[in-house]
């Protein structure tokens, strides 16, 4: 499963994820696909980078913690340097199933999509997740629908596959360091990208930062700043 025999570039932005990173890298390796696995170590204070390197991933280390979406932008830059055609982002906290990767990549390889979002709610209306968090995601889905005229069920998902031609166009317009999930979707919609969702399985991650009031506030701030700077 590759495009022009090029490997698929898989990125795991990680900060202090030494508990999960080895398992994630190993599970990805077991897929028996032509993958190039990168861990963007976002200034971890634990052994995330070393463990990931020993597990067989290429580790790119930020000297200080910049934020999840700064790590994603670094991932985009590396994909462009490596002349990738398709890249995938996976959360390093162990909530995503690496075995769902092929179905995210397939629509891009078939030329049917520019970005594929792994949705936890496409088939499962009540997933293993606190109700307030699910309600918050529904609210942001609605906001994205209003602003970008695109109906989604899981706009904050970190499990995504990207067509690099979209990334090349979107990257100069991305600003947010930490809460960039919605910024990218709004930018993709502005670029008239084909956005689709595929159902994925997810484990509820008890230590996830997502779901806190601060996270919701910052997503709203990101949307507001995006409207101020870009109009959409």
């Amino acid at each position: 499963m590759t495009m022009n025999n090029k490997p698929l570039f898989v990125f795991l932005p990680a900060c202090d994820e030494e508990k999960h990173i080895e398992e994630m890298v190993n599970q990805l390796k077991q897929l028996k696909l032509n993958l190039k696995i990168y861990v963007i170590d976002d200034g971890s204070r634990d052994a995330t980078g070393e463990i990931a390197r020993k597990a067989g991933a290429v580790v790119v280390r930020h000297p200080v913690n910049l934020g999840q979406w700064a790590a994603m932008r670094t991932a985009f830059m590396i994909s462009l340097i490596e002349d990738a055609d398709v890249m995938v982002s996976v959360d390093a906290d162990g909530q995503h199933e690496p075995s769902d990767l092929p179905k995210l990549v397939e629509p891009i390889l078939e030329g049917k999509a520019d970005i594929v979002i792994g949705s936890r709610f496409l088939e499962d209306e009540s997933p293993e997740m606190p109700k307030y968090r699910h309600a918050g995601i529904k609210l942001f889905n609605r906001l994205v629908e209003i602003i970008a005229k695109k109906r989604l069920t899981d706009c904050t998902s970190g499990y995504k596959a990207y067509n690099m031609s979209l990334v090349r166009k979107a990257l100069p317009n991305l600003r947010e360091n930490q809460y960039g999930a919605l910024e990218f979707i709004l930018e993709a919609a502005r670029q008239k990208a084909r956005i689709i969702e595929k159902s994925i399985r997810a484990k509820n991650n008890a230590v996830s930062k997502k779901g806190k009031i601060e996270y919701g506030y910052n997503l709203l701030r990101t949307i507001f700043e995006r409207i101020i700077h870009q109009g959409v």
Binding site: V60, R61, H62, R73, T74, I78
Partner: peptide, 8 residues
């Protein structure tokens, strides 16, 4: 910081 990471 990103440039340092990519340079490395």
């Amino acid at each position: 910081a990103q440039n340092i990471a990519i340079h490395d």
